[in-house]
Computed example of a mutant assay.
Amino acid sequence: MPVHLTPLPAGRFDEWQRAARQRLIDGNRASGRRLGHDAAAYADEFFDGVLPQGAKTPTARVMRIVDERRRELGTLWLVLAGRKLFLLDLAVASELTELQNDELVARIVTIARDMGATQISAPLFPQDAAGHALVEGRGFGVASIQMVLEPLPARDVSSQVVVAPMTAERFPRFLTDSEEGFAQDLVASGRFTPEEAAAESRRQLREELPDGLDTEGQTFYTAAVDGVEVGILWLGMRERDGRPHAFVLDIEVAADQRRKGYGRELMHAAEREARRLGADSIGLHVFGFNSAAVELYEGLGYRRTEESLLRDL
């Protein structure tokens, strides 16, 4: 049964926006990405930013999904940012067939190309069955994953790795390496060109660290074994539903020290430091191509709260 996309009538926009906002809130809370008031506050900020002119926002398209008899099957929200078309909301009354998903993706690809996009991105919560059914097997790959460990486990583990606060003398080299490493990861993820990645890495680092090593809520560590540095750790303190929450912003084992179990020990150290700083949860972001890190984190009890899937055109 073929599917088509038609613009959502202007008279239905406010109703759709209220429902889509609630879906975003519910999705965040169900996945654990954002909880309580955080989920509602994020939804308000998100819609204000992505739909600044409401139904007249030129970069956004809200479409009806209809069959060949023009019966509505659901709605779809697409937003263009730069050269990337984001699939931000898919709401269907019942599961679409494989053929309907094939046709729906084909129509999204046509729209993306017409709008000048070179990629399609689909941020999805783990429980979003319709979204995963749409992208699975249709050229999308996992670009990045948000994860959380909650509550912090009580582990009785011995450690060879000694973690200490990073010195002011060590910090400039860490800053350079972190910026370059993140830019390389952005390129490897397929999300940015080398030039875009360098600019984005620099932007994020400056945003996170306006006062460098002395930025409030940021803690930096070096890890050593028998006096030899083997890695670094950067934790940023956040709030999660009104409670202290730690976020792993950077973790790295030195290239010549890998495959010795130090990555796992650094993650154990992150748990200890997070608890010392008053947090009862830790979040992190990992690129989809880094399968070894994903396996490590999931083995430690982290769970996925959101994935960003990407398809090149």
Rank of each mutant, 00 (worst) to 15 (best):
P244G: 01
D312V: 12
P151F: 08
P2K: 05
V187C: 12
L235A: 08
V50A: 08
L99W: 09
L134R: 02
H245C: 12
R304F: 07
N28M: 00
A164I: 11
P126E: 14
R303K: 09
N290C: 04
P172V: 13
G27W: 01
F171D: 09
Y221V: 05
V187N: 05
V105A: 07
R311G: 03
D250F: 04
E150F: 11
L296K: 01
G137W: 04
R83G: 10
R83W: 11
E136A: 15
F125I: 06
R138Q: 08
T57K: 10
V50Y: 09
A255G: 06
I25R: 00
T193P: 02
A188R: 07
M63N: 10
L205G: 03
V228A: 15
R18W: 00
L213S: 06
L35Y: 02
R173N: 13
D89H: 01
P151A: 12
A39Q: 00
Q53A: 15
L152Y: 02
F192V: 05
M63W: 11
Q204F: 14
D48G: 09
R33W: 12
V157K: 08
Y297Q: 04
R113H: 15
L76H: 05
E208R: 12
R69I: 08
M63S: 13
G181I: 11
D226L: 08
D185H: 10
A255C: 04
Q146M: 14
A60W: 06
